[in-house]
Write a protein that binds this DNA or RNA. Structure first.
Lengths: 210, 210
DNA sequence: AATAATTTGTTGCTTTTGCAACAGAAAAAC
DNA sequence: GTTTTTCTGTTGCAAAAGCAACAAATTATT
């Protein structure tokens, strides 16, 4: 994170004053939005968590992106191709702000404080997104399942400042996130344990290497 | 592209007035920068083309990102991990602007026009970067070499508004970009030709499907 | 508390991908 | 214009990953 902002509560506490912004609530499992046309929609996840997912013709699910609090998403970040439908699915109950990217730099009628704050924080939110995407590409470009797992663990370890950490998602989701077959991933995870690289107790991974 | 900006020539014509910005020239093959420490460096490629590359312990090269005119890059977009050195290599002669991200929102002493324009266009440049990265993730999450190739061709086809287009890079580079083995890619490309999906004449690909 | 649904863990077999090594073509350098 | 380097194209073999199918464990739901 670059700046020490306190965007957290400001956005959340916003009352429905700004005409250009909509706030909606979703329950677990609901589809928040689908990237179909180029409406330049931009969304901010205020609470909960959600996944951007794609299902291919073979029935494979890919978790294209995982969103948690204050992450931004929307069609504005995509060139929509007809080939693949992209859906944002709520993993938990979610509060989401919706607005149109092109409206951001236009002042809204009331010149409201919310709009100002949004404009102020957006660069930081987008920068965080770029950092996340680059981290993701780092994982996906790893050549083997082993390297993908080790890189993923290494990132979690760095984030928690500890060699021991909880896996934030299910192993099924992890396979869909790394874009690999689940059973193959389980096999590799077993080998990593046997080779002494990692220890797994329940949901907790401990790294045994530097 | 979201806005109809004409950033192209403005940035290029900037004379060395702004204290906070440096312009440097590189010849083909030179290393433009290396992501080692978190200096929050941000760069704009004014002319030429460059690759962000990573070499792993097995000698595999990965083209993490490809940059052409007006693309931005730099450490500011990364959480640097000690595991992998990331290098930006000039593929052609390049002109590059360097500055520190944190300085952007500070007004420079002279309150120069360049600085103003930069601040104005940066959101658009970053947005374009996010779009590129998402496109990249789309490719990398494809499960097979065949799907990676077809998706890549599909993107080029959409860009050129034609089912026929030139490959912008060598096949060797394409394999490094898709993070796959070159010989395996060549084999798959051959099969795609044999199966009638694509025609290849020299550097030109023609898609024979809708 | 009982049932349903999801997740974890495992394995045999098949397919895909990677590796190594090479020859010819094309491009770049001298 | 010749030499050197890089790129393309190919192949046999080895290794890795995917697929299918299932049982046990865990977590949700009613």
């Amino acid at each position: 994170m670059i700046a020490n902002s306190n965007i957290d509560n400001f956005l959340y506490d916003f009352e429905h004053s700004c005409q250009k912004v909509q706030k909606k609530t979703f329950i677990k499992g609901e589809t928040i939005t689908s990237y179909i046309t180029k409406r330049n929609q931009l969304c901010i996840l205020l609470s909960g968590s959600a996944d951007l997912v794609r299902y291919d013709l073979n029935g494979n699910k890919t978790i294209v992106e995982h969103f948690s609090k204050n992450n931004i998403f929307g069609e504005v970040f995509y060139t929509i191709t007809t080939n693949n439908e992209l859906l944002v699915e709520a993993k938990e109950n979610c509060d989401v702000l919706f607005f149109i990217y092109d409206d951001i730099n236009k002042k809204c009628q009331k010149n409201c404080k919310f709009h100002q704050t949004l404009t102020q924080y957006l660069p930081e939110l987008i920068l965080n997104k770029v950092i996340d995407l680059n981290m993701r590409i780092e994982l996906l470009t790893k050549r083997s399942i082993r390297d993908k797992l080790l890189s993923y663990f290494s990132i979690l370890s760095t984030r928690k400042l500890s060699t021991s950490f909880e896996l934030p998602h299910s192993l099924t989701d992890l396979a869909d996130y790394l874009s690999i077959d689940r059973s193959a991933m389980m096999r590799e995870l077993k080998l990593l344990k046997e080779d002494g690289f990692v220890t797994k107790t329940g949901n907790r991974i401990t790294l045994n290497y530097k």
